[in-house]
Measured scan of single mutants.
Amino acid sequence: EVRVRALYDYEGQEHDELSFKAGDELTKMEDEDEQGWCKGRLDNGQVGLYPANYVEAIQ
């Protein structure tokens, strides 16, 4: 698992997508798939998908 930080706001479009604001931190659980989606977990425990290019790894 990798900690990542959102670069942009994202509003989930489907029930299985996460929503977050730029600057939020979350945990990447799985690497992106061929469509460019990652599985992650918000700090509130919600698990879902998000676009991989909306986040950067925290060093």
Rank of each mutant, 00 (worst) to 15 (best):
P51S: 06
G12K: 09
F20H: 00
G36A: 04
E14Y: 14
A52H: 12
E14K: 15
H15I: 09
A57N: 13
G23M: 04
H15K: 12
A52E: 04
L18W: 02
T27Y: 15
M29F: 09
L42A: 11
Y8V: 06
R3V: 04
G45M: 05
N44F: 03
D31W: 10
V47A: 09
L7V: 08
L7C: 08
E25V: 14
D43V: 10
G36R: 05
N44T: 01
E14R: 07
G48A: 02
L7T: 12
M29Q: 06
Y8F: 09
P51W: 03
G40C: 03
L42R: 08
P51K: 15
G40I: 00
L7I: 12
E34I: 06
E11L: 11
L26M: 10
K21R: 11
N53E: 04
L42S: 07
L26D: 01
K21H: 15
L42E: 02
L7P: 02
Q46Y: 10
E1T: 08
W37I: 08
G45P: 00
F20M: 04
D31I: 06
G36T: 02
E32V: 11
A52P: 07
V47M: 15
Q13P: 04
L26A: 02
Q13W: 06
Q35Y: 05
P51E: 03
N44S: 13
Y8M: 13
K28M: 14
E32Q: 15
P51A: 05
R41L: 05
E32K: 09
N53A: 05
V47I: 12
D16P: 09
V47R: 08
A22L: 10
T27P: 00
V47T: 09
E1G: 09
G48Y: 00
C38S: 14
V55E: 02
V4F: 11
Y10V: 04
G23W: 05
R41N: 01
D9P: 07
L26S: 01
N53D: 14
G45Y: 02
V4N: 03
E11D: 14
E30A: 14
N44Y: 03
K21S: 10
E14W: 03
L18V: 08
G23K: 11
E34K: 15
R5G: 01
Y50I: 15
F20I: 04
A6P: 01
K21E: 13
G36H: 13
G48L: 01
T27Q: 10
D43L: 07
R5V: 04
R5W: 03
L49Q: 03
E1K: 12
D31M: 10
E14D: 13
A6N: 00
W37M: 11
Y8G: 06
R5F: 05
G36Y: 07
K21G: 08
D43F: 10
H15G: 14
F20E: 02
V4Q: 05
N44G: 12
S19E: 05
R41F: 04
K28F: 04
V47F: 07
D33P: 09
D33F: 08
D24Y: 03
S19K: 08
G12R: 12
N44P: 02
P51T: 02
D9N: 15
D31K: 08
R3I: 05
L49V: 10
G45T: 02
S19V: 05
R3C: 00
E34A: 12
V47G: 02
E30I: 09
M29E: 07
D24F: 05
E25D: 04
D9Y: 00
V55I: 03
Y54W: 03
E34N: 15
V55P: 01
V2T: 07
L18Y: 01
K39T: 09
I58L: 15
A52Q: 06
K39E: 05
Y10L: 10
M29Y: 07
C38L: 03
G36I: 07
P51M: 10
A6E: 01
E17C: 13
E17F: 09
Y50H: 00
M29K: 03
A52M: 06
L18I: 15
V55K: 00
N53G: 11
L49C: 15
G12E: 08
C38W: 02
E17G: 09
Y10Q: 02
G40L: 01
E56H: 08
R3Q: 07
E25H: 12
L49T: 14
G48R: 00
K39Y: 10
Y54E: 03
K39P: 03
W37R: 13
E14P: 10
A22I: 04
H15F: 15
R5C: 04
R41E: 09
Y8N: 10
Q13C: 14
A22M: 07
L7G: 03
K21M: 06
Y50G: 00
H15P: 14
V47K: 04
Y10K: 08
V4L: 07
E56W: 08
G36M: 05
Q35H: 15
G45L: 03
E11F: 14
N44A: 08
Y54Q: 09
A22W: 04
M29D: 04
L26F: 10
E17S: 14
D31R: 10
E30N: 14
C38K: 02
